[in-house]
């Protein structure tokens, strides 16, 4: 019983992380119709920048809640700027290109980010400049929250423990999702985003600045990935090197969440994220922890074969 509740708690915390990343995938897919492979790399950058900024803040005497708020804001700003640049340079020239080309570009961008991030203090020949990458060694997130339990509930013969980090993840994710929900369904910008994702050409004819709307959608997705990166390193403080396969896998699983929920559907991404979280954690706890990825990908293949549009998705048929 305790195991069940504990598993459920960690599922929700991991699931909301997946949901945050999945939101970015689903939003980009909704408007631009391609899988943004670079999303996982942005998530990775978010994680690494969090560690560096948090360390810098701690060194300057900022601790506790202000440190958390500051570092998450700075990380989101950095990643958002980067997302803007990526969109501008790599994706915008390909607005009308076949989708496969954009997909390949996205793979290229992902490779570029990963490998530039993996550079170790490199001197650019002929100049004094050095690029400080994150290197190829694992990093460490300094402790911002004393990893104490928030509260514990006695249950039967034992106690269920809710720790602060999990609470933070859940709280912050819910906040961000509510903000996103508000933007999408209650603002002019949101209406423009929905219109552009439904039919970009018609939206343009209706006077919606489609290019700008798409950029903004992209940037919002990026900032969510950055936030997810921060929360991820709060939960798992030892950080894998930038080129590690882990990042790509985490991103892929989040994409699976988006597909399971119905790609292009924001609420679907949240539900999908939670589902994936539950599946993975429950599988790890009750079956075998070695096959975490296998459960998720098996679910993906099952969903794609049985209901390719996902839980909330709708079908689009090509006209003949």
């Amino acid at each position: 019983m305790i195991k069940l509740v504990q598993t459920l708690l960690s599922s929700i915390s991991v699931g909301s992380l997946y949901a945050l990343i999945a939101l970015g995938y689903t939003m980009v897919y909704g408007t631009l119709k391609f899988i943004n492979f670079a999303h996982a790399s942005i998530f990775m950058l978010g994680a690494w920048f969090s560690a560096i900024i948090a360390a810098a803040l701690l060194a300057n005497g900022v601790t506790g809640i202000p440190a958390i708020v500051l570092s998450i804001l700075i990380v989101m700003v950095i990643c958002t700027t980067l997302g803007f640049v990526i969109e501008r340079l790599a994706y915008r020239p390909l607005r009308d290109a076949p989708r496969l080309n954009v997909l390949i570009t996205a793979i290229g961008v992902a490779l570029l980010i990963e490998n530039v991030a993996a550079l170790n203090d490199v001197k650019i020949p002929g100049t004094q400049t050095t690029i400080h990458g994150f290197g190829t060694q694992p990093g460490k997130m300094p402790e911002l929250l004393a990893n104490a339990d928030l509260f514990s509930i006695p249950l039967g013969s034992g106690t269920v423990v809710v720790d602060k980090v999990d609470a933070l993840i859940l709280g912050l994710s819910i906040c961000l999702m509510i903000v996103l929900e508000f933007i999408i369904y209650n603002t002019r910008l949101g209406a423009a985003m929905r219109a552009a994702s439904h039919d970009a050409r018609t939206a343009a004819l209706m006077g919606i600045p489609v290019d700008r709307t798409i950029s903004i959608t992209f940037i919002i997705g990026t900032s969510l990935a950055a936030a997810a990166g921060f929360l991820y390193v709060m939960k798992y403080p030892s950080i894998n090197p930038p080129v590690a396969v882990t990042w790509g896998l985490l991103g892929l699983k989040a994409f699976v969440a988006a597909v399971v929920g119905g790609i292009g559907n924001v609420r679907g991404a949240v539900v999908g994220g939670l589902l994936i979280g539950i599946l993975e954690q429950a599988g790890a706890a009750y079956l075998s922890p070695h096959f975490r990825d296998v459960y998720v990908f098996a679910l993906l293949i099952f969903v794609l074969l049985v209901r390719p549009t996902g839980i909330f998705g709708s079908t689009a048929v090509e006209k003949v």
Partner: peptide, 19 residues
């Protein structure tokens, strides 16, 4: 160290200039 960086840039540039 630069191998993958060069590949990545090649991919992006090719997709934009010569898809």
């Amino acid at each position: 160290e630069y191998r993958m960086i060069v590949y990545a840039i090649l991919l992006i540039v090719f997709m934009i200039v010569r898809p």
